[in-house]
Amino acid sequence: MKMLAMDTSTLVMGIAVLHLEEKRVLGELTTNLHKNHSVRLMPALDQLLGDLELNMSDIQALAVSAGPGSYTGIRIGVTTAKTMSWALGLPLYSESSLTVLAMNGLRFDGVVVPLFDARRRRVYSGVYRREGERMVEQIPQQVVEVDLWLEQIAELNQPALFLGDDVVRFEEVIRRRLGEKARFGTAAENIPRASQLGMLCRHKWANHEPPEHADFSPNYLQMTEAEANWIKKQGNGETSHAQKS
């Protein structure tokens, strides 16, 4: 059995095909470009399957990153995966994009901190520690102001490996707050891997965890700007109505 995994939750677009029974990555395609995933995802998928001499009829399961990350990128990946799941009758599994990135620090002897920029000096992040061949959350995923986040990490008093292309934007304040306990990933370690996504979802498949339901939706960790504006308008409307009454 084979699984197709796709991750479009950041600027990195990754696709991988795994052999489920053999726990083997058959092929992987990764790019890190400022280009539209909606235009490039399906051609990249066709390319990888072609290189492996496979068709979609050879795929028995799907995996997708559920966020957080880029709103647009997440929607592209999740919508594509859900459409393929429905059209082909394939089970769909998902995993957090932060957990996927944290897997690059599996061999680190300390805590691992995957991080995406959430703008306005905030980050999407979580703190992980290795347990066997998996990364387990030590501090739950959240969207948080970076200085407050570093306070939480400093309280652990452990070496902390920061992963992600966005880490460079906060490297100075990280070094200032954590000193020698701050470690930083290499260029390769900072890129989420679709093969890691596939292996995480393969674990769910092997342990007979149920796939996602038809109403599965991304995990943004916060409201979209459109949602926040709508709620703000509703709140203003209620206030105005109350004042009039």
Score class of each variant (00 low, 15 high):
Leu98Phe: 02
Leu200Glu: 00
Val146Glu: 05
Ile139His: 03
Leu4Ala: 01
Thr99Ile: 00
Arg169Lys: 15
Arg119Lys: 13
Glu151Gly: 07
Asn190Leu: 09
Leu197Gly: 03
Leu156Val: 01
Ala160Arg: 02
Val173Ile: 15
Leu106Asp: 04
Lys233Val: 03
Leu33Glu: 15
Val113Ala: 02
Ile231Ala: 11
Tyr93Ala: 06
Ala214Phe: 13
Lys233Ala: 14
Asn229Gln: 15
Ala5Glu: 07
Gly164Gln: 04
Met42Val: 12
Arg40Leu: 12
Asp109Gly: 08
Ala242Pro: 00
Leu156Trp: 01
Leu98Gln: 05
Arg75Leu: 03
Glu227Val: 06
Gly73Thr: 05
Gln196Phe: 06
Asp215Trp: 10
Pro91Glu: 12
Asn157Cys: 04
His37Lys: 07
Val136Lys: 14
Leu161Pro: 05
Pro43Ile: 11
Gln47Phe: 13
Gln243Lys: 15
Thr80Pro: 03
Thr30Ile: 15
Gln234Asn: 09
Ser217Gly: 07
Arg177Asp: 13
Tyr93Thr: 12
Arg176His: 08
Gly89Val: 08
Gln196Asp: 10
Leu26Pro: 14
Gly110Thr: 02
Gly185Val: 09
His241Arg: 14
Gly185Cys: 09
Ile191Glu: 08
Thr30Arg: 14
Asn36Met: 05
Thr186Ile: 01
Asp215Thr: 14
Gly185Asp: 01
Arg177Phe: 03
Val168Pro: 00
Ala61Ser: 13
His37Val: 13
Ile76Cys: 02
Thr72Phe: 00
Glu21Asp: 14
Glu151Trp: 01
Gly50Asn: 03
Asp46Thr: 04
Gly132Val: 05
His37Asp: 10
Thr186Arg: 05
Arg75Ser: 07
Asp117Leu: 03
His208Met: 07
Leu49Gln: 11
Arg119Trp: 07
Val111His: 11
Glu189Leu: 07
Leu221Trp: 03
Thr30Lys: 11
Leu163Ser: 09
Asp7Asn: 06
Phe184Gly: 12
Asn157Glu: 11
Leu52Arg: 01
Tyr220Gln: 02
Val111Leu: 05
Pro43Cys: 00
Leu101Asp: 10
Leu150Arg: 10
Asp7Val: 04
Glu171Asn: 00
Ser96Thr: 08
Arg129Asp: 06
Thr99Cys: 12
Asn36Gln: 08
Gln222Thr: 03
Ala214Trp: 14
Ala214Val: 11
Leu197Glu: 01
Ala81Ser: 12
Thr186Gly: 14
Leu200Asp: 04
Leu92Asn: 07
Ser65Val: 00
Arg121Tyr: 04
Ala61Pro: 13
Leu90Val: 08
Arg134Asn: 07
Met223Thr: 01
Pro218Gln: 13
Leu49Arg: 11
Met56Pro: 00
Glu155Trp: 02
Glu180Ser: 11
Glu137Asp: 01
Leu148His: 15
Val64Gly: 02
Met199Ala: 05
Leu26Trp: 07
Leu49Met: 05
Asn236Ala: 12
Leu33His: 13
Glu189Gly: 10
Met42Asp: 01
Gly89Asn: 12
Arg75Val: 10
Glu172Gly: 02
Leu221Phe: 01
Leu41Gln: 07
Gln47Tyr: 13
Gln234Glu: 15
Leu101Glu: 12
Thr72Ala: 08
